[in-house]
Simulated scan of single mutants.
Amino acid sequence: MSKQPQKSPVSVLKNALQYEFQDLELLRVALTHASALAPSETVSGSYQRLEFLGDRVLGLVIASMLHRHFPKADEGELARRFNHMVKRETCAEIAQELGIGEAMRIGLAEAQTGGRKKTALLADICESVIAAIYLDGGYDAAEEFVRRLWEPRMLSWSGPLRDAKTTLQEWAQSKSLPTPRYDVTGRAGPDHAPSFTVAVTVQGLKPGEGTGGSKRIAEQSAAEAVLRREGVWKE
């Protein structure tokens, strides 16, 4: 019996996406890292612009699902659930399930340094794929894709629901400590997709550090790091 030809990583990904592209060029660009571009090509041929759009589409779909599924949740609880659903680690986990890492178009040097398994890159390209589906099939197609992959996680998640900054402040107050102080210690990335690093200082404790696409998200991440280190949160 003859062997069946092995499917390419992109073919495997297309099946996993459960979406039929009308314009496959959108998917190709969504999967392309700048390191794979020829010298004559511009950065617009890589995933970066699509990632910017996909991040917003994902946010809208997740926010809409949360609003529908948790009618009694206050803003703080919704924000906490939202942050968990759109955070880099969640997107990277979904990217791995889909096989995005194997299907990415990346340069040799990037591949040799583990680019196909980098959490940040997997998360970014996952969002760029969302944008490609949105541009190719419209909002309904993107919503269906996000719902299928994110909704089960949304409904099964049982992590802490309080806002990290609020929780850390209340915890500090319970120990008669001053209000935690937040300081921006770094900024990286292009203007359209910045990454901030924030350190939070609680008197008598080692500072906690967090990163995010905005100062607010980085502050929450830093507060969460301290809460987990101190055993207040045990997700």
Rank of each mutant, 00 (worst) to 15 (best):
S2T: 14
K7G: 01
P9A: 06
P9T: 04
V10H: 02
V12H: 10
K14D: 00
A16S: 12
A16Q: 13
A16V: 01
L17W: 04
Q18A: 10
Y19H: 05
E20L: 07
L24M: 14
V29S: 00
L31D: 02
H33G: 05
A36S: 12
L37D: 05
L37M: 07
E41D: 12
E41G: 01
V43P: 01
S46A: 15
Y47C: 08
E51Q: 14
E51C: 06
L53V: 12
D55V: 07
V57C: 06
G59F: 02
G59C: 09
A63W: 03
S64E: 13
R68A: 15
H69C: 12
A79T: 15
A79P: 00
R81E: 03
N83C: 03
V86F: 03
R88M: 13
C91Q: 14
C91W: 01
A92P: 03
E93V: 00
A95K: 09
I100V: 14
G101S: 06
E102L: 11
M104E: 11
R105S: 10
I106E: 13
G107H: 07
T113Q: 14
T113D: 10
R116F: 05
R116Y: 10
T119V: 15
T119F: 01
I125D: 01
E127P: 00
A131K: 02
I133S: 02
Y134N: 09
Y134E: 06
D136C: 00
D136F: 00
D136L: 00
G137I: 01
Y139I: 08
A141M: 02
A142K: 09
A142D: 06
P152H: 07
S156G: 03
R162W: 04
K165M: 15
K165W: 01
E170G: 00
S174L: 02
K175H: 15
K175Y: 06
S176R: 11
L177I: 08
T179G: 01
P180Q: 03
G189W: 09
T201H: 12
Q203M: 10
Q203D: 11
L205A: 07
G212R: 08
G213Q: 11
K215P: 02
Q220M: 10
R229D: 09
G231M: 11
W233T: 04
E235H: 08
